[in-house]
Write a protein that binds this DNA or RNA. Structure first.
Length: 208
DNA sequence: TGATAGATTGTCT
DNA sequence: GACAATCTATCAG
C-alpha cells in the first residue's frame, strides 16, 4: 500500500545540490527551514520538514565543539567541506548536524526539530508513541524517529540514503537564543536559533 | 502546566 | 573521572 505513496511522494523530490550548502552558515540555518530531510532504510522511508535549527560557528563560538578550531576525532568532520552530516552522541541520544562553512572552517547547523511528513507509521514505531507533536520536536527525538545514527557520520547529504530536498515555503521565521548551552560567555546570547513561527512541532519554549 | 532530578555513554583531560 | 548542543518521569500546584 504505502509503496504506491512512496513513488508518488518521491516523484518531485530532488536532493539539494552542493551549492546550497556553500552559503554562509547563518543563511544556511534559515534556508534549511521548510526543507525536507529524508532517510531511506531497509524498514522504509521517513521524511520531515525542518522547522527548527541552530547555528554553531566554530572559532569564536564558545558553545561549539569546534571552539577555537579544536580539532578532535569527534569534530574532525566539521573541518571538511559543507553538506556533510555531523552526528554526535549526547547522553543516550544522537544529534544531527549539517556541516557548513567549507574546508578548514568548522561550522555547522544543528537540526533541532522536524514536522513529520512521510513514513509517520514507521516513526511512531521507532519512538514507541502515538502523538504526532512529540515525534520529532527535539534533537534526540528526531534522530530516533528518522533512524539516524552514528552510522551516518560524514555522509554526504546530496544523495540517498540520507539527504535534504527543497520543501515548502516558510511564511515567517523567528530567531532567538540557543538552547542547552550554559557557561558559554557571550556566545550564550547570540540569536543563532531559528524556527518556523507558530509551528507546533518546534521544541518547547518560546512563542513568538 | 511547569520545574527538577536522574539516566547513561562516548569523548576528552 | 568529569562533563555534555538531551529526554523522560515524577512531583507540586
Amino acid at each position: 500500500m504505502e509503496w504506491i505513496h512512496i513513488a508518488d511522494f518521491l516523484k518531485d523530490i530532488e536532493p539539494l545540490h552542493q551549492e546550497f550548502y556553500d552559503q554562509p552558515t547563518l543563511e544556511l540555518a534559515k534556508a534549511l527551514l521548510g526543507c525536507l530531510l529524508i532517510k531511506e532504510t531497509k524498514e522504509g522511508i521517513a521524511a520531515g520538514y525542518i522547522v527548527e535549527t541552530e547555528a554553531y560557528i566554530g572559532p569564536g563560538d564558545r558553545a561549539a565543539h569546534s571552539y577555537q578550531n579544536r580539532r578532535t576525532k569527534r569534530t574532525e568532520i566539521m573541518f571538511h567541506r559543507s553538506g556533510l552530516a555531523y552526528t554526535y552522541v549526547m547522553h543516550t541520544h544522537c544529534l544531527f548536524n549539517v556541516v557548513s562553512g567549507g574546508e578548514e572552517k568548522p561550522e555547522a547547523v544543528l537540526v533541532r526539530a522536524l514536522e513529520p511528513a512521510f513514513g509517520i507509521e514507521l516513526m511512531k514505531i521507532r519512538r514507541g508513541i502515538e502523538e504526532l507533536t512529540k515525534l520529532t520536536n527535539g534533537p534526540g527525538k528526531l534522530t530516533k524517529s528518522m533512524g539516524i545514527s552514528m552510522e551516518d557520520y560524514s555522509r554526504a547529504l546530496t544523495s540517498p540514503p540520507l539527504y535534504i530536498a527543497k520543501g515548502i515555503c516558510t511564511e515567517s521565521i523567528s530567531a532567538g537564543k540557543r538552547i542547552g548551552i550554559n557557561n558559554s560567555g557571550e556566545a550564550r546570547d547570540y540569536l543563532w536559533r531559528f524556527w518556523v513561527t507558530n509551528n507546533k512541532y518546534v521544541s518547547k519554549q518560546q512563542k513568538t
